[in-house]
Amino acid sequence: MEGQFRIDANRRTLFVGLVCVDILNLLPKYPEEDIGHRCIDYYKQRGGNASNSSTVFSLLGGNAEFFGTLADDTELSFIQRDFEKFGVIFKNSIIISEKTCPLSIVILSLESHTRTVLHTNKDLPELTLDGFVKNINLNSSEYGWIHFEGRDNAHEIARMLSYIKEFNKVNEIHIFTSLEAEKLRIAPYLDELDMWKLPDIMFVSKDFARNQGYTSMEQAVTSYYKKVKTGAVVICAWGEMGAAAMSDQSGLVTSPAFPPSEILDTCGAGDTFIGATLFALGQGKALQKAIEYGCKVAGSKCGVQGFQNLTLLKDVFSQFQLSS
């Protein structure tokens, strides 16, 4: 399937979903309850699955845009400056007044290499089809790929994917679509709304698959592949085991993980995998090569604290140039 998902370099990949602010606290080990603890370090960064994936995609040299709702509060300028810093377009995002920016408190343990996320989203509305149609002009030929982070607005995501599907039926230039199933809350809607059959690529996380009873990435993709539409692809990253994928052309393919010499921060590794894999597929790489590339870039991210150090991330990712 080499070249199946290649898109022109001048066409953007749109990442649809959440952007929030992350406050990350680095501790020697996971804290005990009801006593004080001193952190080794802390830092603040722009977060959210789709937001992180757009950052990685841009750092790798891709033409990335983020689309979501933004709260017009004290964090708005920080988020906008950070998108600009990483070269991610966000001009079409919807700014909503009198709402609060979502916030994540992340506990990073050096001992166990775990990240524990405490997320709060007070009142920021999710995206709707109406907002998508009003702000994203598919007829402009700007977009080659649209990736959706699976969130609580599953009904609206299904409508947006269906809208793109209908657009593709009557237009010569095809827009590829992908959907991430990470949050367990979306699970019932994938079947209820028949969302498995809407995207060209379905990304399924390890935690999502394990919650549904699967014990390996190979087992997960083989089973989920039966649910997707003809010609679609299922991809599942499985942490330290690597990733697996399946398509009608490639069959089952796998990649090992590529951990760094020292694991510093696994927060955002899954988002990194998605951003890097989409970049490789958009460059025309075969499915097995694309997930291997995703694993390499995600592994390198685990050796870097956060996403806030632009220069360091560029240096780390620069070693993974896509071969011809």
Rank of each mutant, 00 (worst) to 15 (best):
residue 186 I to M: 14
residue 240 E to D: 14
residue 210 R to E: 14
residue 102 P to C: 12
residue 195 M to R: 09
residue 174 H to F: 01
residue 63 N to D: 05
residue 117 V to D: 06
residue 153 N to W: 09
residue 236 C to A: 13
residue 181 A to G: 06
residue 255 S to E: 08
residue 121 N to E: 10
residue 310 L to F: 12
residue 2 E to W: 02
residue 150 G to Y: 06
residue 153 N to A: 13
residue 311 T to N: 13
residue 141 S to T: 09
residue 59 L to T: 02
residue 257 A to I: 01
residue 2 E to C: 04
residue 214 Y to N: 14
residue 44 K to M: 15
residue 212 Q to L: 15
residue 247 S to A: 11
residue 37 H to N: 00
residue 162 S to N: 02
residue 169 K to H: 11
residue 265 D to L: 12
residue 317 F to V: 07
residue 10 N to D: 08
residue 287 L to I: 05
residue 265 D to S: 10
residue 14 L to R: 04
residue 205 S to H: 05
residue 145 W to I: 02
residue 236 C to H: 01
residue 166 E to Q: 14
residue 146 I to W: 12
residue 156 E to W: 01
residue 236 C to G: 05
residue 194 D to C: 08
residue 217 M to G: 06
residue 148 F to G: 04
residue 204 V to F: 03
residue 249 Q to E: 14
residue 272 T to M: 05
residue 115 R to A: 10
residue 120 T to P: 00
residue 219 Q to S: 15
residue 285 K to S: 03
residue 184 L to D: 09
residue 4 Q to C: 06
residue 294 G to H: 03
residue 270 G to H: 12
residue 267 C to D: 08
residue 298 A to E: 03
residue 171 N to K: 06
residue 11 R to C: 12
residue 300 S to N: 09
residue 6 R to C: 04
residue 60 L to G: 02
residue 181 A to D: 03
residue 258 F to D: 05
residue 78 F to Q: 12
residue 85 K to E: 15
residue 38 R to A: 13
residue 186 I to W: 12
residue 231 G to H: 02
residue 85 K to Q: 13
residue 198 L to Y: 06
residue 314 K to V: 01
residue 302 C to Y: 07
residue 64 A to W: 03
residue 23 I to R: 09
residue 47 G to S: 10
residue 58 S to C: 06
residue 102 P to H: 09
residue 316 V to Y: 11
residue 63 N to P: 00
residue 285 K to Q: 06
residue 221 V to N: 06
residue 123 D to F: 09
residue 83 F to A: 04
residue 73 D to F: 11
residue 240 E to K: 15
residue 225 Y to G: 00
residue 110 L to T: 13
residue 62 G to I: 03
residue 187 A to P: 13
residue 66 F to E: 05
residue 27 L to E: 00
residue 171 N to M: 05
residue 289 K to A: 01
residue 146 I to Q: 10
residue 259 P to N: 10
residue 297 V to C: 03
residue 217 M to Q: 13
residue 124 L to C: 10
residue 52 N to V: 04
residue 131 G to C: 10
residue 12 R to G: 07
residue 211 N to L: 14
residue 251 G to Y: 14
residue 14 L to H: 11
residue 254 T to A: 01
residue 141 S to C: 13
residue 255 S to N: 03
residue 91 K to A: 11
residue 64 A to P: 03
residue 82 D to G: 06
residue 48 G to K: 10
residue 151 R to T: 07
residue 87 G to H: 07
residue 151 R to L: 12
residue 283 Q to K: 14
residue 108 L to D: 02
residue 268 G to V: 09
residue 281 L to A: 06
residue 63 N to T: 00
residue 41 D to H: 11
